[in-house]
């Protein structure tokens, strides 16, 4: 069994004393190497939960263990060595004069040697697809490139876990897939990825597990297929499965589909099977 890299026990969070619970009795386990999708409508508590995992918000009640360690008294800057967090708006996360310096900002704070920083930045520039922008001024880049720089900057710190908070928001079709591919590649190197998103098709395609939040509570969790096979339950939080899943459900009888389909390829195979039959 894989190592539990994130463990959340009975987590409650309220922004104001005696205020309402924005995160309510969350119990969550994430295993090393997971690619988790966190979904839910606006105000469901996704970002609050993520900020609690990073230490930016301290739990009102409950405990959070990152890599087996209770993070209650650990400074955020120390947690960031294990858990990298990419916030929603890239503009607030760019501090350096050039993209290369931006990528080096985290490792420099970690005390990584100059040689190693050079190696890491070269690798990130290449793998994230921003090599041609290495000497550019980050705030002047396009939104898609700014997002890539910010993700790359956190990846350069080589955290065991990376949390991407709505990384594909405002991105075009290609940009969304490029960003998710970057995350996928990072996961293939053995890291754990947590993505908060509203893009159901991306979640279905990339994540091996999904956690659905509703009013600060976990409504359901499981594999993409398990979660998207329950559209009635998802409806409680106004989430609709990917369009291709809805199409497959609508044609279940005609095409004799028994399981939940998640992507175009799966649907294509079923259609072909039906035509051949």
């Amino acid at each position: 069994m894989a190592n539990k890299i994130i463990e959340v026990k009975n987590l409650n969070y309220r922004y104001m004393d005696n205020g309402p619970l924005c995160v309510n009795n969350i119990n969550l386990e994430v295993e090393e190497g997971d690619f988790i999708g966190i979904i839910g409508q606006n105000g469901a508590g996704k970002s609050t939960l993520m900020k609690a995992l990073t230490g930016l918000l301290r739990p009102s009640e409950g405990q959070i263990f990152i890599n087996g360690e209770d993070i209650a008294d650990i400074p955020v800057s120390v947690i960031s060595n294990t858990l990298g967090y990419v916030l929603q708006n890239p503009d607030r996360q760019l501090f350096a004069e050039t993209v290369r310096e931006e990528l080096a900002f985290g490792p420099t704070n970690q005390g990584v040697s100059e040689e190693e920083i050079e190696k890491r930045t070269d690798y990130i520039l290449e793998s994230v697809g921003i090599l041609h922008l290495a000497d550019e001024y980050p705030p002047a880049l396009s939104k898609g490139d700014r997002a890539k720089v910010v993700i790359g900057s956190v990846m350069a710190m080589e955290p065991k876990i990376i949390i991407l908070d709505e990384p594909t928001g405002g991105q075009d079709y290609i940009g969304r897939y490029q960003i998710m591919d970057i995350a996928k590649k990072f996961r293939e190197k053995g890291h754990t990825v947590v993505v908060v998103t509203h893009a159901m098709s991306l979640v279905a395609e990339y994540c091996n597990r999904i956690v659905v939040l509703c009013n600060g509570e976990i409504l359901m969790q499981g594999t993409s297929r398990e979660v998207f096979s329950q559209p009635e339950k998802l409806q409680q939080t106004f989430i609709r499965p990917p369009q291709i899943t809805e199409l497959a459900n609508a044609m279940k009888e005609e095409l004799h589909i028994e399981e939940t389909l998640l992507c175009v390829e799966e649907m294509g195979d079923k259609v072909l099977e039906h035509i051949e039959a």
Partner: peptide, 20 residues
Amino acid sequence: DEARVVMDAQKMRGFQVFET
């Protein structure tokens, strides 16, 4: 608010000065 978010982003990149 924005300054707070930027500081959070810096902390998340291992910048310890604001905390310690």
